[in-house]
């Protein structure tokens, strides 16, 4: 971690309710520039809602989320899209666009109305697709791609926005293990090599521990723990949040924390 990690996103006193039901309760959070954050926690803990608030796909209350000291509600839509990109959950696209068409949509914030993509936009799209290893798919229709390929194309689209911050909502939840690792490696590379600040919702705690600088542990709409994976993933916290007994070990390859569930019913087998 470099020394100039000043905070790029600051969340203060964020509450969010849907139909009178409190989803997020008094969230306070500082995201430091250039780091990889994972939001983890059980189903219904508010992970996606938090991410959508930051991405402004749902509107947070005024003066609760600042990016570089400016309330995110004060950005123009297009200007905001130049700073922050968002890869939503479930990106199944049943449309007859080529992959390149989809990635070029990432250039929308930079285009005026009636202006079509210029050589520069094509160059950015090409670079984004090469970074995610999708350039060979450029002329293929998006609906014919496999889940892993499609996810990489959608990440390329987010990259084409040339934003400093990238949010991802469960980017690997529907992929096989090979594709999971490939996608996570890609995101990590973007984060390390190009300094993109990453905030990703992840379900798999072991993957989150391997790839993240910081974990944000949500439970019932509140941050119960925040810090480096070693300090966040403890047997006590997991028992408390998931009601599950686990054994914490160190991943023999990289020394990161790794948990092994102790299945209560079959523990004797």
């Amino acid at each position: 971690m470099s020394m100039d990690n000043f905070s790029i996103i600051k969340i203060e006193g964020l509450n969010y309710s849907i139909n009178e039901k409190e989803i997020l309760k008094d969230i306070n959070l500082e995201i430091k520039k250039g780091l990889f954050y994972s939001i983890v926690g059980p189903n219904g803990s508010g992970k996606t809602t938090l991410l959508r608030n930051i991405s402004r796909t749902i509107e947070p209350p005024k003066n609760t989320i600042n990016i570089e000291t400016k309330d995110i509600l004060d950005f123009k839509y297009k200007d905001f899209a130049k700073i922050l990109s968002y890869v939503p959950q479930n990106t199944s696209i049943d449309l007859d666009f080529t992959s390149l068409d989809v990635v070029l949509m990432g250039r929308h914030p930079y285009l005026k109305r009636f202006e079509s993509e210029k050589q520069w936009d094509l160059a950015v799209a090409e670079k984004s697709m090469k970074m995610t290893n999708t350039w060979h798919l450029k002329d293929k229709s998006i609906k014919t791609l496999s889940g892993g390929e499609r996810q990489r194309v959608v990440i390329a689209r987010a990259l084409a926005q040339e934003s400093r911050i990238m949010l991802l909502d469960e980017p690997i939840s529907q992929l096989d293990i090979h594709n999971q690792i490939e996608i996570m490696d890609t995101i990590r590379l973007l984060n390390k090599k190009y300094g993109i600040t990453v905030i990703s919702v992840l379900h798999d705690l072991n993957i989150a521990a391997q790839y993240s600088d910081y974990l944000i542990f949500l439970h019932e709409g509140q941050i119960v723990s925040l810090g480096e994976p070693d300090s966040v993933l403890t047997e006590e916290t997991i028992k408390k949040v998931y009601n599950l007994d686990v054994l914490m070990i160190k991943n023999p390859i990289n020394g990161k924390p790794h948990l092994i569930p102790k299945s209560p019913r079959y523990s004797g087998l």
Partner: peptide, 15 residues
């Protein structure tokens, strides 16, 4: 075109 990708995607692309 972009709205076809879904409302969330479209919003995050500045629409």
């Amino acid at each position: 075109n972009i709205i076809l990708l879904g409302d969330d995607s479209a919003k995050s692309l500045g629409i």
